[in-house]
Design a protein around this nucleic acid. Structure first.
Lengths: 165, 165
DNA sequence: TATAATTTTGTTATGATATAACAACTAAAA
DNA sequence: TTTTAGTTGTTATATCATAACAAAATTATA
């Protein structure tokens, strides 16, 4: 169970980004996938944001850097990154988040703060196992899991309401 | 653990609708909420659909019946029904589903078939408890849970691919 | 290396989902 | 009955996402 730190936990986020990008390069190479300039930069920008990034926010950043500014550009990059397991989509926010352990098969489980909108990814094998069992028991063949828990994070709980981090 | 039947399990769906509407009337009355014509009819239409209904699909049905056909009409009704716990939003589909046990505080856990798009609501106290514990352990105060499992339902698994129910 | 096949990107247009803002109306409370 | 609160009408627009086809770049094959 790694990377359960809040985005605000003290750590050098640049290291996270570097590691994520290195992992991405390796994974793509292994799978014969091409991590092109725009895909690589999109991944980097998603990681540079501490919070899930909307497609059009990402598009704006890419456009600033001279990439094409039409929506298909960003959605293609997102599709690629999602397919490669390098990012997750947070369904309840329509936003995208770097995946901290793309190298391991896993599910994206998230704790989302209603107040500051920070998102913490967590992994929970017990829950995964229980869900698999539940689904199987209903004759259902599980393909994907969307688990998004919303509420108040520890930081925001300690703060007066409205003062988002 | 009720109402785990597939929408295609043999049962008289009209009874479900009637029960849901009766429950809605009672709940709204108890809470001093007004289940107006458009809200009531929206709820009914959502229930009449065996699958989650998109906002604009619902809007079209309401418009056919003489209700105002501008988007705010339907989104207001949906907001009201969501707030009252009478429906759920399936985030991964951007669609809305009648809640089968609005009278009990509960979470919306769903099994969603990729093939036929039918959705089965389920309730799972063990998972709920585990998630609460997990969140609390992180200092997180849980407010809502979105659990959407996608895959292949028993019916579709038994069928040749493409032949959606 | 040429050329064919495949993948990626550019471009225009549009579809799908959702909300802001303010006016008009209606039901409930004072 | 007048106020108040809640609901609905209306117009406009914001936000999220994809279709379709052309052009370019990369990779594979002859």
């Amino acid at each position: 169970m790694k990377h359960e730190d809040s985005p605000h936990t003290h750590h050098n986020h640049n290291d996270c980004i570097d590691t994520a990008l290195d992992t991405a390069e390796i994974l793509c190479a292994q799978q014969g996938q091409r991590l092109t300039k725009v895909r690589r930069r999109a991944l980097e920008l998603i990681w540079e944001s501490h919070r899930p990034l909307g497609a059009y926010q990402l598009l704006a950043k890419l456009a600033e850097e001279g990439f094409n500014s039409a929506p298909p550009t960003v959605y293609r990059a997102l599709d690629f990154l999602l397919g490669a397991g390098l990012i997750h989509k947070v369904e309840s926010m329509n936003a995208y988040l770097g995946c901290a352990h793309a190298d391991k098969a896993h599910k994206g489980y998230f704790l989302i703060c209603d107040e500051c909108h920070n998102v913490m990814e967590f992994d929970y094998q017990d829950i995964h196992a229980a869900l698999i069992e539940k689904a199987t028991h209903q004759g259902f063949e599980l393909r994907a899991e969307t688990i998004e828990l919303t509420g108040l994070c520890a930081k925001c709980k300690a703060k007066p309401a409205g003062a988002s981090a």
